[in-house]
Design a protein around this nucleic acid. Structure first.
Length: 410
RNA sequence: GCCAGGGUGGGGUAGUUGGUUAUCCUAGAGGACUGUGGAUCCUCCGACCCGGGUUCGAAUCUCGGCCCUGGCCCCA
């Protein structure tokens, strides 16, 4: 039998309804903050991603050549595409630009809990606002969106300038190596590496910085930082808004294109892959041939949020099954039309079953059965049966519709 | 790429010191019945992940692959 490709999933209606419901909550929050949806191609020139992250990421992507010999790739993330789109289409749009997206991405990695080869991201990008209120808005929006889904998480906020300041004396290759240790909290490896570099004194400062949880201490450890005022202003805006977060100056996030604030959120109840959101401030537009617009954005790992939420009880709408005898069938269609017009999900028998078998089927798939037989056709009424309690009554159509409206799903 | 544990009808399972036609529940289809059959009874549908090996004989033992679950690496 044919199988779906490794790391992909099929979604049955129950799961799709749950996903769409969470998606709708995210969309609604984005809408309220003024972030409007954009859409970019599912595949892009390979160069778009290698330009930014180096040739190494080719191993982690779905790369292919089209019939014209173009090197293309299924997008592994969407920020790069959005910024390319900004440079191509919207350079002169009034700033700030507030955009969001919800779309699937592809990475060729080993699947595990919360990690799939096709996965969905809900992200936002704020382009062209290089201020403390801009940074604060994006971080607050991130929290607002996660809160809307009901997921339990911890938000960590950091800023790269502290670490950059401490590492300013090292060459880029050494910086990268040191940050690798810090990202993994590998302090033994850190001390060893710095020892080799004749910089043993740095180990203590970096360890302190990574464990430090307040701004004043961080400044004390890292020394004077040019962005100090901007950082303090942003943090005070977060505090004033009552945001729940912890400061963490060990967040690295690959550094390649992040320039200032970086933040991540982690779900409490996931496995090894528990990061559900990541973002920060960055400058990518210039790399893609545009102006040097400052940007700030994040992406939510939608599938991980769904895993973290687990089996959530969905609010369900009532389902009506029309049950009829052969002589009632044509009126049954009119009755079904009336229920649908009233907004209810309404299904009729397509199997030409007997009335008993229809009720039997309805009891598994619906909340109400509306019986249209010879008697109802003659009287002009309908018999409505509550499939949970078994109670039924024969009433005018309007009354039956009103009853479903009042009582809801059973 | 590496490690561990798994893979039996659509879902859930029994069966593995090798031995008839692979068990049961559920779901699905059909019938009896023809206004509640949502019951009861009957029938049908449908599985040993794939391939090689050992054997008279493999779901069972063995090797390889694929896939699943979780972990490592990575995580833009």
């Amino acid at each position: 039998m044919l199988q779906k490709p490794r790391g992909t999933r099929d979604f049955l209606p129950d799961e799709m309804e749950a996903r769409r419901s969470v998606e709708a909550k995210l969309r609604e929050v984005a809408r309220r903050w003024g972030y409007r949806e954009v859409c970019t191609p599912e595949f892009e020139d390979l160069e778009l991603f290698t330009m930014r992250s180096g040739a190494g990421i080719v191993e982690e992507m779905y790369v292919f050549e089209d019939k014209g010999g173009r090197k293309l790739t299924l997008r592994p993330e969407i920020t790069a595409s959005v910024i390319r789109m900004y440079v191509n289409e919207a350079k002169v749009a009034p700033k700030p630009i507030r955009w969001c997206y919800f779309a699937d991405c592809f990475r060729y990695e080993r699947p595990q809990k919360g990690r799939y080869r096709q996965f969905w991201q809900f992200g936002v990008e704020l382009i062209g606002a290089d201020t403390a209120p801009a940074d604060a808005e994006v971080i607050l929006l991130a929290a607002d969106m996660l809160d809307a889904t009901g997921v339990k998480y911890e938000l960590k906020v950091g800023h790269l300038s502290f670490m950059k300041n401490l590492l300013a004396g090292l060459d880029p290759v050494s910086q990268r190596k040191v940050m690798g240790h810090l990202d993994k909290k590998d302090f033994d490896g850190l001390a060893a590496t710095l020892g080799e570099m004749q910089e043993p004194g740095l180990a203590r400062a970096l360890t302190d910085l990574v464990e430090c949880r307040d701004l004043q201490s961080a400044f004390a450890i890292a020394g004077e930082i040019a962005e100090r005022e901007r950082i303090e202003k942003t943090i005070s805006l977060l505090d004033a808004a009552g945001l729940k977060y912890t400061l963490n100056f060990g967040i690295v996030r690959g550094l390649d294109y992040y320039t200032g604030f970086v933040f991540e959120a982690f779900a409490d109840n996931l496995g090894a892959e528990n990061q559900i959101l990541g973002g920060g401030t960055y400058r990518l537009a210039k790399l893609f041939g545009g102006d040097d617009a400052a940007s700030c954005g994040f992406a939510i790992g939608f599938d991980r949020v769904m895993v973290a939420l687990g089996e959530v009880k969905q609010k369900r709408e009532p389902i009506v099954a029309i049950v009829c005898t052969p002589e009632g069938r044509s009126r049954a269609l009119a009755v079904a039309r009336a229920f649908r017009k009233a907004g209810f999900r309404t299904e009729t028998d397509l199997m030409e079953r007997g009335i008993g078998a229809q009720v039997s089927h309805a009891s598994k798939t619906a909340d109400y059965a509306v019986v249209i037989g010879k008697r109802e056709t003659e009287s002009g009424e309908v018999t409505i049966k509550d499939l949970k309690s078994g109670e039924q009554k024969t009433v005018p159509l309007d009354e039956a519709i009103a009853g479903v409206k009042i009582n809801g799903p059973r």
